[in-house]
Design a protein around this nucleic acid. Structure first.
Lengths: 174, 174
DNA sequence: TCGCGATGATTGAAAACTGAACTATCGCGA
DNA sequence: TCGCGATAGTTCAGTTTTCAATCATCGCGA
């Protein structure tokens, strides 16, 4: 099977996967490589994002949350929706919002229709911060993803979404 | 821009990214979607793997570590190599190996040539466990990735590796 | 209208992970 | 051979994340 040139940080991992296959026949090597690649990339991305927002006193998760609030600035969002949008557990979202609220970046208020719900709204200060950080993040992101052309990006998105769909379906059954 | 059908769990996220773009022109929407997709997939995969190895009393990280040890069963591995292969920090690897050692799945011994190093070796019990679990994992993995054909998998691997390479390069500079 | 199971959010305890010291050892040059 | 910066691994303290229990509120049916 042909392999591709790859970053040093992943070479070690791939070498080890190959060694597993040598010992135990039938290993779906390419599949394992894919899974590990996704994890590896996820970590790399997190590290980069963290490094970018740290100077502003935020964590990557905090920033992601704030951005989701920014997206819904006009109406505000319920906490549960927000946790879904940011991809965090509800418990964790509570803590993250605690932190953001302490920093004055968001406001919490009880829902009017349903007082169990909590409406979260980004503050003026939060908007300012997001709008200050976003352009820099976008530039970085654009630079990093320049290695792929438009067609490749589209194809990558398609493939990853197929994968996400498959994993979703696999979930509750097994 | 055309979008693809996608799992419900990611729909919310994508909708929110779209809303950010409405508010702030110039957002590289497709790029952001890609990054969030990768993170989303990484989490999904972790959940699935965890669910599979939990009954054996292992965490996903523990199993991944054990598998890397299995790959190098003949010679054993130094702890630092292992942490690199498993994609964990050295600190965390110490803790994980503590756990695996307590369960009798690996042996630790001082290196002979260099006594600072610690040689890690999978135990008989560890080998048995890995060989019991692997086939089930591979079956699951195979099922999940059946949504992609061979050509698509190869293309996905190529694209992801390109991305990994780009992020690697971006690292120390900015 | 009164209950009561269901739901949204929070809290507390525990687990997982990380960064910064610290310890022991190494290899190299004076 | 001695000393000393570098390296491997661990420990400790702090952060982040999760699970399970809890609180408050809702909506629905008797």
């Amino acid at each position: 099977m042909r392999t591709f040139p790859v970053c040093p940080s992943f070479n070690v991992i791939e070498a080890n996967i190959g060694r597993v296959a040598e010992r135990m026949r039938g290993a779906p090597v390419r599949d394992i490589v894919l899974v590990r690649l996704i994890k590896h990339l996820s970590v790399q991305i997190s590290v980069h994002l963290n490094r970018m927002v740290r100077p502003a006193g935020l964590s990557e998760v905090g920033f992601r949350t704030l951005m989701m609030l920014y997206a819904n600035a006009s109406a505000g969002v319920f906490a549960s929706q927000l946790s879904e949008a940011a991809g965090e557990t509800r418990t964790n979202m509570t803590r993250i919002c605690d932190d953001l609220a302490r920093k004055g970046l968001l406001r919490r208020r009880a829902g009017t229709r349903d007082r169990r719900r909590v409406v979260l709204e980004i503050s003026r200060k939060g908007v300012t911060l997001v709008e200050r950080l976003l352009p820099r993040m976008w530039t970085q992101l654009d630079m990093a993803l320049r290695v792929l052309n438009a067609r490749e990006k589209l194809e990558l998105e398609r493939l990853l979404k197929n994968l996400a769909l498959a994993l979703d379906g696999l979930g509750p059954s097994t």
